[in-house]
Computed example of a mutant assay.
Amino acid sequence: MNKMNTQAATNFDRITEAIAYIQQNFKEQPSLEEVAEHVHLSPYHFQRIFTEWAGVSPKKFLQFITLKHAKKLLKEQQSSLFDTAYESGLSGSGRLHDLFVRIEGMTPGEFKNGGENLSIHYSYVESPFGKMLIASTSKGVCHIAFADDEGAALQGLKAKFPAAVYTQQMDAVLENIRLIFTHDWDKIHEIKLHLKGTDFQLKVWETLLRIPSGQLATYGSIARQIERPKASRAVGTAIGDNPVAYLIPCHRVIQSSGLFGQYHWGSVRKAAMIGWEAVKAEQMLIDE
């Protein structure tokens, strides 16, 4: 093994050890300096290689672990916000609130209540690629999924907001989506989205929105655009978690080898969408 490979293996071992340490000690909310000392690195060097290997900073990883534990307490044990904050190693419910809003896009209470008091309108519409379930809140589109099985698609939506009030009707927001499917696909940017996700996910989804119809990007190029060049795998996970099919064009991301790769709603559908958009883009050039 050459020197470069030896160093990479050493770094991997250190990051693995650091991840295990954070997972075991998150209730103490260890500082960057404490974790770095545990793996015998300077804070600066540890921060750099951890971010390269894990795709997120040590602080963000600690937040994710803390949030995961807090969500379990709120959902499974129905703990109070104060007790949840204490059992998660946070100084108070204020820090718990900030953590949830920053990463989940909702307050701890809203998460615990599963979207209680949230009104969601939904409808089924036809697209060139099959039937879709579309849903919106008063703030904008919150969910779009292909609905080969209408019942399963609706259950998938309700699983995200189990306590919300659902009404099957076509409101103004959903009507705009339907019109895009039948008239002008180039006005997607005019539709407001109501999304919840981590800062990293939102950054990836925002980058996807900038891929023009008829063009493609790779996982690596998306990682570079968000200034995380070694986080292609994390980028792929965020793309797979896209809650709004087609409007956030995760289908336009392919492997660096040129293979289209997998797609949440089927690789055949992904190929059809890419081909359809390529023809539309070529036709627009001819018309010009």
Score class of each variant (00 low, 15 high):
274 I>G: 07
130 G>H: 09
268 V>Q: 06
173 V>S: 14
93 S>K: 12
219 Y>G: 15
7 Q>N: 04
237 T>F: 07
15 I>P: 02
257 S>N: 06
87 E>L: 12
20 A>N: 05
202 L>H: 04
203 K>Q: 11
67 L>K: 07
246 Y>D: 01
62 L>W: 01
186 D>M: 15
38 H>W: 00
33 E>P: 09
146 F>S: 12
161 F>T: 13
155 Q>K: 13
164 A>R: 04
211 I>M: 14
158 K>S: 10
19 I>Y: 00
123 S>Q: 06
284 M>D: 00
66 T>V: 04
23 Q>C: 12
64 F>R: 13
179 L>S: 02
109 G>V: 05
176 N>F: 01
277 E>G: 12
106 M>Y: 01
39 V>F: 02
187 K>M: 08
13 D>Q: 13
46 F>C: 04
87 E>S: 13
16 T>L: 08
215 Q>G: 15
248 I>R: 00
124 Y>F: 15
100 F>R: 03
219 Y>W: 11
227 E>N: 14
128 P>E: 01
214 G>E: 01
39 V>P: 05
83 D>H: 10
217 A>L: 08
186 D>E: 13
143 H>W: 10
36 A>I: 09
131 K>C: 14
190 E>I: 07
19 I>F: 01
25 N>V: 02
236 G>M: 01
53 W>V: 15
102 R>H: 10
241 D>I: 01
154 L>T: 03
265 W>G: 05
280 K>R: 15
12 F>T: 07
157 L>Y: 05
287 D>P: 08
171 D>P: 09
36 A>S: 10
228 R>F: 05
186 D>P: 03
84 T>P: 07
273 M>D: 00
169 Q>S: 12
243 P>G: 11
230 K>M: 06
142 C>Y: 00
104 E>W: 01
83 D>P: 05
193 L>Q: 03
233 R>T: 00
181 F>S: 15
140 G>R: 02
29 Q>M: 08
264 H>K: 14
194 H>Y: 08
106 M>W: 01
152 A>V: 05
229 P>T: 09
236 G>N: 03
197 G>C: 09
227 E>S: 15
107 T>G: 12
23 Q>I: 00
122 Y>G: 14
6 T>E: 09
21 Y>I: 09
79 S>E: 06
111 F>D: 10
86 Y>A: 12
68 K>Q: 13
211 I>F: 03
62 L>M: 07
263 Y>T: 14
44 Y>V: 06
52 E>R: 10
76 E>W: 03
144 I>Y: 04
106 M>H: 04
130 G>E: 10
175 E>F: 00
265 W>Q: 13
165 V>R: 13
34 E>V: 14
195 L>A: 08
44 Y>M: 06
107 T>W: 05
112 K>P: 06
217 A>H: 04
28 E>N: 14
153 A>L: 10
151 G>K: 11
97 H>Q: 10
81 L>G: 01
110 E>V: 15
242 N>T: 13
195 L>V: 14
237 T>V: 14
4 M>G: 10
246 Y>S: 10
210 R>V: 11
240 G>D: 12
71 K>D: 09
53 W>E: 15
207 T>A: 15
137 T>F: 06
227 E>Y: 11
6 T>R: 09
25 N>R: 04
287 D>T: 13
128 P>N: 06
34 E>T: 14
281 A>F: 08
279 V>C: 06
278 A>N: 13
44 Y>T: 12
222 I>P: 09
